[in-house]
Computed example of a mutant assay.
Amino acid sequence: MGLFKRNPFGHILFLKKWLIRIAGTLTHRRYRGFNELKIEGSDILRSLPDKNVLFVSNHQTYFADVVAMFHVFNASLSGRGDSIKNVGYLWNPKLNIYYVAAKETMKSGLLPKILAYAGSVSIERTWRANGEDVNRQVKMSDISNIGIALDDGWVITFPQGTTRPWKPIRKGTAHIIKRYKPIVVPIVIDGFRRSFDRKGLRIKKKGILQSMEIKEPLQIDYENESVKDIIEKIEYAIEQHPSFLKVIPQEELEAMEELNEKRKWEY
Rank of each mutant, 00 (worst) to 15 (best):
A129C: 11
Q250S: 13
R179G: 11
K178N: 06
G119K: 05
F34V: 09
V100D: 09
R198G: 13
K233L: 13
R193I: 04
T157S: 12
A237K: 06
A102H: 10
S141Y: 07
L37F: 01
T61M: 09
Q240A: 07
G109I: 13
H175S: 15
G33Y: 08
L253Y: 08
E266D: 10
G147H: 02
Y222I: 11
D142Y: 08
F192T: 02
V100H: 09
V188A: 07
V72C: 00
S42D: 00
F70D: 00
V121A: 05
L45S: 01
R128Q: 15
G200C: 09
E124P: 05
R164L: 14
F196Q: 03
Y117L: 15
W91M: 10
R32P: 01
L90N: 02
N86W: 03
E124W: 08
K233F: 06
I84L: 00
E235W: 03
T173Y: 02
L45Y: 00
I230R: 04
L54F: 07
I234Y: 01
E124F: 15
E40H: 08
F192S: 01
R128I: 12
G2K: 14
L45H: 00
D133M: 15
I169P: 00
V72A: 01
R179Q: 12
M212H: 00
D197G: 14
E232D: 14
K17H: 02
A75H: 00
G81C: 10
T27S: 14
L209T: 05
S144T: 14
K16T: 07
S141W: 07
Q60C: 08
F158H: 12
E213H: 11
I176C: 09
V121M: 07
L15C: 06
E132I: 04
G131K: 10
P112M: 07
A149N: 03
L90Y: 01
L3K: 14
I146A: 07
N35H: 09
N52L: 14
M140S: 11
S144C: 07
I220C: 13
